[in-house]
């Protein structure tokens, strides 16, 4: 690695990994930097993290790049794997990084149940609204009307509104930002890492190659401008009607509360039972 490499790259990534799998203009770099910057600003040791990811473009954020324990799992299951890792290592930070297809289509059930359990995981969900890696198929997050390779006449289904869904499932902390908001995104990831409970940070991200083409939004810069123009703060959105909010990205913190967390309850139960011995 050259001395000119980014300090986060030098400090936190595997030096022998020289290539990424992302396309030019992808939002994944922004999200990855926000994650590493969060760990750095918190002055946490990356050896105290276990990163778990599934299948899809954004699952490649930690694996193979982060120089830490990384578990690259099967499609849709990273939250289930991470639940076992966290219960086995309750003192460590367990972070799931994966995409909207992985975490809300094939793995949707695990996501809502982990939120219900309120297990102390930090889930960074990169939502690009499409299946990027497999060539641009409709995702459960693709807005109605958009023509993708599997909805060539326009998507007919309604899309998931992920953050409110995870709030409803019982998470302790939920925030949504776009890649136009890297600083806010970093702040929320920091909060999510520190939160004792299930934390979801939804990062709406641009996929210029698949989504940009399908939606005719254009390249990365055009998509970021689109995020900027259409983002509405959650407190402002609460005063707006459904029609006004059509096509908007509601950003900000959706929930931030204290409630019983699963892995800590297990530690306490085990201590109590062992004391009885």
């Amino acid at each position: 690695m050259t001395k000119n490499a980014h300090p986060l790259r030098q400090k936190y990534t595997r030096s022998h990994i020289l290539r990424t799998t992302t396309c030019p203009g992808c939002g994944i770099g922004t999200v990855s930097q926000a994650i590493l910057r969060s760990i750095d600003e918190l002055q946490f040791d990356i050896d105290d993290f276990i990163f778990v990811s599934g299948i899809g473009c954004s699952a490649w954020i930690p694996s193979p790049f982060y120089n830490a324990d990384t578990l690259h799992t099967t499609h849709g299951r990273p939250v289930a794997f991470a639940t076992g890792v966290k219960l086995g290592l309750p003192d460590k930070h367990v972070m799931v990084v994966s995409g909207d297809g992985d975490l809300t289509a094939i793995g949707g059930n695990h996501l809502i149940h982990a939120a219900r359990r309120n297990i102390n995981l930090t889930v960074v969900l990169v939502n690009n609204g499409i299946y990027g890696m497999t060539g641009g198929q409709t995702a459960p997050t693709t807005p109605r009307g958009i023509k993708t390779i599997t909805s060539p006449y326009g998507a007919m289904e309604h899309h998931f509104d992920i953050s409110p869904m995870v709030v409803a499932a019982g998470a302790s902390y939920v925030a949504r930002w776009t890649t136009y908001h890297p600083r806010q995104l970093t702040r929320s990831i920091k909060k999510g890492i520190q939160k004792k409970g299930f934390a979801l940070i939804e990062a709406v991200s641009q996929c210029p190659v698949q989504y940009g083409r399908a939606s005719k939004l254009g390249g990365a810069v055009d998509m970021l401008k689109h995020f900027k123009k259409n983002s509405v703060r959650i407190n402002k959105a609460r005063e707006m009607g459904a029609e006004e909010l059509q096509g908007k990205f509601i950003v900000g913190e959706f929930t931030d509360l204290e409630k019983a967390e699963l892995s800590e309850q297990w530690v306490r139960l085990r201590c109590e039972m062992m004391e009885e011995r």
Binding site: L71, A80, F81, G84, L87, H113
Partner: peptide, 27 residues
């Protein structure tokens, strides 16, 4: 719990094996 262990009732069998594999990697 009597012997310092953990039991997780999962949402399905897929989650059961995945969390068991995760726990195995946790030692």
């Amino acid at each position: 719990p009597e012997v310092g262990g953990t039991f997780l009732q999962t949402e399905d069998e897929i989650s059961a094996i995945c969390s068991a594999i995760g726990a195995s990697w946790a030692g």
